[in-house]
Amino acid sequence: MKRKRGKRLVLAIGAVVMALSLLSGCGADDTKEDADTISVYLWSTTLYDSYAPYIQSRLPDVNIEFVVGNNDLDFYKFMNEHGELPDIITMRRFSLHDAADLKDQLMDLSTTEEAGAIYESYIQNFTNVDGTVNWLPVCGEADGLVANKALFDEYDIPLPTDYDSMIAACQKFEEHGIRGFVADFAYDYTCMEVLQGLSIPEITSMEGRMWRSSYEDPSTDMIGLDDTVWPGAFERMEQFIKDTKIVPEDLELSYDPVINMFTEGKAAIIRSGGSNVVAFQNNNVDAVFLPYFGQDGEQWLLTYPAFQVALNKDLEKDKTRQEKALKVLSVMLSEEGQNVLSKGEAVISYSQNVDLELSPYLENLSTLMQQNHMYIRIASNDFFAVSKDVV
């Protein structure tokens, strides 16, 4: 049963799914409406606030059902096995490696304008060995190091510009009884981002790209890390742990204790995201975003998409529905759509056709963006797990 205003809330107890539909044409027959409706599964309820209503407002003639699904590819594999895969899927915790079982049921988006607009260095991370592209990244969030500038000023310690100056700063803070660096290592994603962030030059080298391509390709025998790229990454992680005096107890640190240490002046540098820099500044904490420092002297920005989006191949059976779904995709990845997601703060775009305004607190990211020193993290389920084991 629909509400008069064309919005309905559906709770599917078996799948633990909440759905919100923003539908037009409320007087239409239910059967016809279901056939015309494009289902969009969202990875989080946060997309309901402004993003979903924005998409529907730009497509008043398309019935769109927005559903909060699950941020887990196994959920969609289960739906696919039962013939219930939605028309459009969004995923945040994602890798081609984990999505391999869905490949044959997803549309090839490689010839779409949206795929063509994505910078080559990023679209290659979503390109299958056969040249097809099933998933497209929406705008990305920046991950790196965040420094408490007030502490640096108070103790007259220069802000780091490379790995050596960061370690030197940490050592000076330790002399004053202040932790130079801490992170919420209780979470696998923090372990993963620090491990990758410290070794971006190696992961993006020719050998690193070859490994990643093989790892993401389900047709190869590659099931884990290699003995060319990753031993060096482990060594750098070990050296970083020694240099920053990370101790076993730090593996229990969660988000709130780390944030409290930072805001109370008990820690000078933490691993965090650009959005937290904006939040700190809005709460009168003078925070500065720093990149990851490669031991070769280069600076890198680790990023991860706000989410990835894919379309069900079954849409190709009905050209009218396929055209509607592609219109939805176009709006989702449009400049205005990505600005709705970014809220003018800490989000960058992977598309050449999209210009997102950064917060003034993150203007130092512009140089790295111009140099194309942005890296999309590897985020397979087993990589999350092995990263925590490594730390």
Score class of each variant (00 low, 15 high):
residue 252 E to C: 06
residue 18 M to P: 07
residue 236 R to W: 06
residue 13 I to H: 14
residue 343 K to T: 13
residue 241 I to S: 02
residue 252 E to K: 08
residue 325 A to Q: 00
residue 16 V to E: 13
residue 317 K to W: 09
residue 174 E to T: 15
residue 383 F to N: 13
residue 293 F to K: 02
residue 186 A to E: 12
residue 98 D to T: 06
residue 288 V to C: 05
residue 85 L to W: 05
residue 355 D to I: 07
residue 336 E to I: 03
residue 127 T to H: 03
residue 261 M to E: 09
residue 383 F to E: 15
residue 270 I to T: 06
residue 33 E to F: 06
residue 32 K to A: 14
residue 5 R to I: 13
residue 108 D to V: 12
residue 157 I to L: 10
residue 329 L to E: 02
residue 251 L to G: 04
residue 280 F to E: 04
residue 177 G to V: 13
residue 231 P to L: 09
residue 176 H to Y: 06
residue 319 K to H: 12
residue 387 S to K: 02
residue 355 D to Y: 07
residue 358 L to N: 04
residue 51 Y to S: 00
residue 66 F to M: 01
residue 235 E to L: 11
residue 372 N to H: 10
residue 218 P to K: 10
residue 182 V to S: 12
residue 103 K to Q: 13
residue 8 R to I: 07
residue 50 S to M: 04
residue 373 H to N: 01
residue 296 D to Q: 09
residue 1 M to D: 11
residue 234 F to W: 07
residue 235 E to N: 08
residue 240 F to C: 11
residue 200 I to E: 00
residue 384 F to H: 15
residue 165 S to P: 04
residue 27 G to L: 09
residue 84 E to N: 11
residue 351 S to M: 12
residue 131 G to F: 03
residue 365 L to W: 00
residue 341 L to T: 07
residue 142 A to W: 01
residue 139 C to D: 13
residue 310 A to K: 06
residue 39 S to Q: 10
residue 34 D to C: 01
residue 37 T to R: 01
residue 98 D to A: 07
residue 343 K to W: 01
residue 388 K to C: 08
residue 122 Y to N: 07
residue 187 Y to G: 15
residue 194 V to Q: 03
residue 180 G to N: 08
residue 183 A to E: 09
residue 223 I to E: 11
residue 349 S to M: 07
residue 279 A to L: 12
residue 143 D to E: 12
residue 106 L to D: 05
residue 158 P to Q: 08
residue 170 C to Q: 08
residue 21 S to Y: 02
residue 4 K to M: 11
residue 34 D to R: 00
residue 341 L to I: 15
